[in-house]
Design a protein around this nucleic acid. Structure first.
Lengths: 227, 227
DNA sequence: TTGCCTATTGGTCGCACATCCAATAGCGTG
DNA sequence: CACGCTATTGGATGTGCGACCAATAGGCAA
């Protein structure tokens, strides 16, 4: 329980304080949306005065963009780790879809929708979203290309495949907020089935890989066990 | 040019005034987003005092939901008219995709993204969005089913097909705000190619129909010309 | 024309926000 | 231990918002 009485003032290095602020703002964004990032709110949660936040981020929008970038980057490293045990692109792809379908991904999924919408009004955030978009696409493209080179994936345009997969994921994110179709199977299965089609994989092959290699957000990486 | 001096007070019937307010709010939503619908803003554009708006909409959120519903319904009737000249489901489908890809659709596309995001916080709006989602899906399903019955479309699940098409359209809307892929063809072609696949149509057939029957937002309906 | 009903006004309240700045006090340095 | 640098405070300013309500005046009916 955070006490509501303010503690004695604590002095930290600018770098540490700045990181602390961004982390807190990112947590708020994931839990309640980018609009909930306010100087007052972040200050309160850090048990600091609002003036301090605006000292580090004279323009509020910078903090919002920074928070989004931080959250998105962290999630990207979680979903599509840049350092991989080589030779298993399909396992990583399966893991990617398992994680993006899981309930743990809800927050990030909403955050992307949130950021995309807010991008219309806030230029700084728009640039950041565009940048993250490139990062995600490149990371996914790299994985697909590795699969294509190894022959486990069949596509003549890895970039296009990555884009199409991400677009469908965005569509699913958008729909998730208000879906009333009463056809959860149709909706939830779209990402994987689209991926299997785009990547020239057999129907159900990704799902099979996912169950064979349970997605573990703690250990993070696909196992290198038999088969 | 609207003069900034306020004119003499004009007394209208509640129905007329209410409709006027909703129309104005819907226009604001389409042009600048649902967040820009404020009592003060709508009042100013109607040359009326803010108190009047809150008289008709004691809770602001009701006006926002009403504005979205109004705009979405109008667009639905434009894109997927309920009264159709029978026997041409494919032409209407082609027209639908031509219109949703056009620049005129940008506003509505953003509005959906906007509404989906805001739905997370505002319950009243969420219900309205869910309702509109059903309307759109049902209207599209009906069209697909008509095609399936006529044999021009091949699908064993018209509802699933409609959902998948709408999900991809949502994904494209989301992406449109920040796309940096430098692969416009990949992105813009996704809706139609997904539709052709889901509906069991030959690649390019919808595009061919669209050019043969130019989408005219004025006359609105596919022509009944030869062929 | 008169009078009444009610649509409309104009003003107020409280709240939350970003932004700014002089004063303060934590803490490493000497 | 004393000092000075600067991270941090606290308070003020101005904006825009929804909500509320007694007073007003438009326009229809009698």
């Amino acid at each position: 329980m955070s006490s509501s009485v303010q503690s004695k003032r604590v002095r930290k290095t600018p770098e540490a304080r700045r990181a602390e602020i961004v982390d807190r703002a990112a947590a708020i964004a994931l839990a309640e949306g980018l609009e909930c990032i306010t100087m007052r709110r972040v200050a309160e949660e850090l048990d600091v005065r609002p003036g301090l936040i605006s000292h580090y981020f004279p323009v509020a929008e910078d903090l919002v963009a920074e928070a989004f970038g931080s959250a998105a980057s962290a999630e990207l490293d979680e979903l599509l780790p840049s350092a991989r045990t080589p030779g298993q692109p399909l396992r990583y792809l399966a893991r990617f879809f398992a994680l993006t379908s899981g309930e743990n991904y809800d927050g990030m999924s909403r955050l992307w929708l949130n950021a995309r919408h807010l991008s219309r009004y806030r230029e700084i955030l728009r640039d950041r979203v565009g940048h993250q978009e490139c990062l995600w696409r490149d990371r996914l493209t790299e994985l697909i290309r590795e699969g294509a080179d190894a022959g486990t994936v069949r596509t003549d345009d890895p970039v296009a495949a990555a884009i199409q997969i991400l677009v469908v994921l965005d569509g699913l994110s958008a729909h998730a907020n208000t879906d009333r179709s009463d056809r959860p199977a149709v909706v939830s299965g779209m990402a994987v089935s689209t991926a299997e089609r785009v990547l020239g994989l057999a129907v159900g092959s990704l799902a099979a890989l996912a169950t064979a290699t349970p997605a573990d957000r703690t250990t993070g990486h696909p196992t290198t066990d038999h088969n």
